[in-house]
Computed example of a mutant assay.
Amino acid sequence: MRTEPLMNLTYQQGEDGMLYPDLQISENVETDRTPVGGFGSLWKNYMLENHPHRMSELVAQGKINEVILKVDEEAENRKERLIQELLTAQPMPDTEDTLERAGHMSMITSTAEEIVISELVLRPR
């Protein structure tokens, strides 16, 4: 009969005095602790609903957080580039009206986000 544990876990004491295991999903601890942005969360939800088998594969391989962060980073970079391109094509109105300028920027940002979501986020990886 086996007497040694299947996994050797280390524990951290929480603020409530309880011991919590130090669990790690991927090989890179920093990847597991990096917060996920909006595009990464949207991609994760899309994959869970539409491609659950692929999500299971990524989790089993320990790559899920890396892929989520990669999607988020690519999407944010693409959004920033698109905003600059759209501002070149549709420059800010030459007015002192702050609300009009804010509305224009909001429209450009929304357009860029829609493009990024359709191009990068709502795609299986």
Score class of each variant (00 low, 15 high):
60 A>R: 06
60 A>G: 02
60 A>S: 02
61 Q>M: 05
61 Q>A: 08
61 Q>I: 02
61 Q>W: 03
62 G>P: 00
62 G>N: 02
62 G>W: 05
64 I>W: 05
65 N>H: 07
65 N>F: 01
66 E>Q: 13
67 V>T: 05
68 I>A: 00
68 I>G: 00
68 I>Q: 05
71 V>F: 01
71 V>S: 03
71 V>N: 01
72 D>P: 04
73 E>W: 05
74 E>W: 02
74 E>P: 00
75 A>M: 04
76 E>A: 13
77 N>C: 06
77 N>H: 10
78 R>E: 04
78 R>Q: 06
78 R>K: 06
79 K>F: 03
79 K>I: 05
79 K>G: 02
80 E>Q: 12
81 R>Q: 13
82 L>V: 04
82 L>K: 03
83 I>M: 14
83 I>L: 01
84 Q>G: 02
84 Q>N: 06
84 Q>H: 06
85 E>C: 05
85 E>Q: 13
86 L>E: 09
86 L>W: 03
86 L>N: 09
87 L>T: 04
87 L>C: 10
88 T>N: 12
90 Q>F: 11
91 P>N: 09
92 M>H: 03
93 P>H: 10
93 P>C: 10
94 D>K: 14
94 D>S: 14
94 D>Q: 15
94 D>H: 12
95 T>M: 10
98 T>Y: 10
98 T>K: 12
98 T>E: 11
99 L>P: 02
100 E>D: 05
100 E>M: 08
100 E>A: 08
101 R>Q: 12
101 R>L: 07
102 A>L: 13
102 A>R: 13
103 G>A: 14
104 H>T: 10
105 M>K: 13
106 S>K: 15
106 S>Q: 15
107 M>R: 15
107 M>P: 09
108 I>R: 13
108 I>A: 13
108 I>C: 12
108 I>P: 13
110 S>N: 12
110 S>R: 12
110 S>E: 11
